[in-house]
């Protein structure tokens, strides 16, 4: 699967050909540097490792410094491997948006969702809450209700959905349409929302 690493810029809206306003996300995608090439002969499978975003030299470990030096490039903050990339690039080459994506493509975006802290069942799992503000609810409008039966099984089953730390998970969004590409600025505009906050790292993949 081909893909590139990028950064979420933010959301805006664009008018399509039919005159409708479409909510879109702008992603700064690449340019990425090939930091390692794996092949069937040496590693047992084909893949490409690419890096994105400049890292500070002092924050890079010695082993990684050597790794980037091999590819004749500067240290990168994000490094990711893509299996079966199938693109004619060598170690140290740069991959840009237009090498992989075109307008109209359906892409998959992977990112880490915004952290929401400790949240109750209503926000975390979409529980309905208890009734309305009527029916004698004194102070438990958003309580989870029963968490299981009584004497049998005499315990709460594992995996019972309860309140807890929410967000900050890896989220994959599939079939997002590429609305526009600005090659010079390394920008890609996709229809719809993607996980994460502004400036968060995302991976954009294409079959």
């Amino acid at each position: 699967m081909k893909g590139l690493l990028g950064r979420k810029v933010g959301m805006t809206s664009i008018y399509n050909a039919a005159g409708q306003s479409v909510g879109c996300t702008v992603i700064e995608l690449g340019p990425c540097v090939v930091t390692q090439v794996k092949s069937t002969d040496t590693d047992g499978y084909n893949s490409l490792q690419i890096g994105f975003a400049e890292a500070k030299e002092k924050n890079t470990t010695q082993p990684l410094k050597g790794h980037f030096k091999k590819a004749n490039t500067t240290p990168k903050r994000r490094v990711q491997e893509f299996r079966d990339f199938n693109i004619d690039k060598q170690l140290g080459d740069t991959i840009t948006v237009v090498d992989i994506f075109a307008e109209g493509d359906a892409v998959t975006v992977v990112g880490v969702s915004k952290g929401k802290g400790f949240q109750g069942g209503v926000k975390r799992y979409g529980f309905a809450g208890v009734g309305d503000q009527t029916h004698g609810q004194h102070n438990r409008l958003r309580s989870p209700g029963s968490v299981g039966a009584s004497s049998y099984p005499s315990k709460v089953f594992k995996g019972q959905r309860m309140a807890g730390r929410t967000g900050g998970d890896q989220v994959t969004v599939t079939k997002l349409k590429v609305v526009k590409i600005f090659a010079e600025q390394n920008l890609i505009v996709v229809k719809g929302a993607i996980p994460g906050h502004k400036n968060s790292f995302v991976t954009v993949k294409k079959k």
Partner: peptide
């Protein structure tokens, strides 16, 4: 560079 503004300018009509 403000990329959101840039995209808006590119997609704006005359």
């Amino acid at each position: 560079m403000d990329f959101i503004r840039f995209v808006g300018q590119q997609c704006a009509r005359d």
